[in-house]
Design a binder for these strands. Sequence first.
DNA 1: TCATAATCTGTAGGCACCTACATATATGTC
DNA 2: GACATATATGTAGGTGCCTACAGATTATGA
Lengths: 168, 168
Amino acid sequence: MTPSDGEPLPEDYSRRLGGAALGARLRRLSEAIDGDATRAYAALDVTFEQRWFGVLNQLSLNGPLTVGELAARLRITHVSVSQTRASLEKAGLAQTTADPDDARRRRLSLTPAGQGLVSRLRPLWQALEGAALELDAEAQAVTAALDRLEDALARRSLYQRVLDRLET
Amino acid sequence: MTPSDGEPLPEDYSRRLGGAALGARLRRLSEAIDGDATRAYAALDVTFEQRWFGVLNQLSLNGPLTVGELAARLRITHVSVSQTRASLEKAGLAQTTADPDDARRRRLSLTPAGQGLVSRLRPLWQALEGAALELDAEAQAVTAALDRLEDALARRSLYQRVLDRLET
DNA sequence: TCATAATCTGTAGGCACCTACATATATGTC
DNA sequence: GACATATATGTAGGTGCCTACAGATTATGA
């Protein structure tokens, strides 16, 4: 049984439980979305891992960047970038050159194959972008709402808010 | 380097890229949220896995339910419920009884230890709920926006929308 | 100048899901 | 009543992140 097969769906309890289930709801949505994106790549017969997108896109827009720079831009850990880098290198899509000023750093850049893949994917990325804008309009500014949520969390984390409540 | 340590943060590119990065944004947010929830359990010295919440909560509200029923209510796969069930049983928090009408089904119910844990966690769950409502107000109805996004995706999936765009 | 601290990247292992496939039981049809 | 099909659950293995820790290099200051 999958979550999307039944006839009349039972009540969606995760909608009622804003608190402890908010994370679960967001995860569910993110899985639905990049599951669909994955299917789109497959439909075009392109071998592609979702996690490649951020790095590939940044490198194609900005030229070489270090692991740390990519992590900061994409708001993920350097560890995740490092793993993606390894995967991209293994796939022959990106390469590493030593930074002449600092031997700790690795400058990542696209290989010709990487550039080729990016070009081939542009139409799909544009379709995804268009579909996302359409969804955003249809759902009346979800992304703006997400921005506000991120900002609110940056002001005071959920953890802090919960602790404050437990103390009183 | 972590994503939340630097001084002035560089531009957050994931906000610009609605399309291919929407899934990533949602995932990032969900990780922030249930990371914080995990820290809250740890602060109270409670051994707790995030994934237990949905099942535990449903069982405490509704009494025994089967794996499939839980999956439908929580909008996750039966596989995920099955794994959570195993984990809950191992932790002594839930138990399985055979369904007299259908030997394929497993009815899950809370053990006394499970009920005890739920009681002890109620205050925390309420604090989480309160914090989520506060966040929702501060971010001006994010959850309503998420509802609308889910509904829009249910009407026509991202996959379908992307394919339609690629065909024209 | 040289020990100490800070910074950059990497490895190991974990988490909460997922898909693909397998097994056991139930149902419908001839 | 036997057999194909549908349903309920489970196992194996994968995904894209994460934290904790470790190694290498650079910057700082006594």
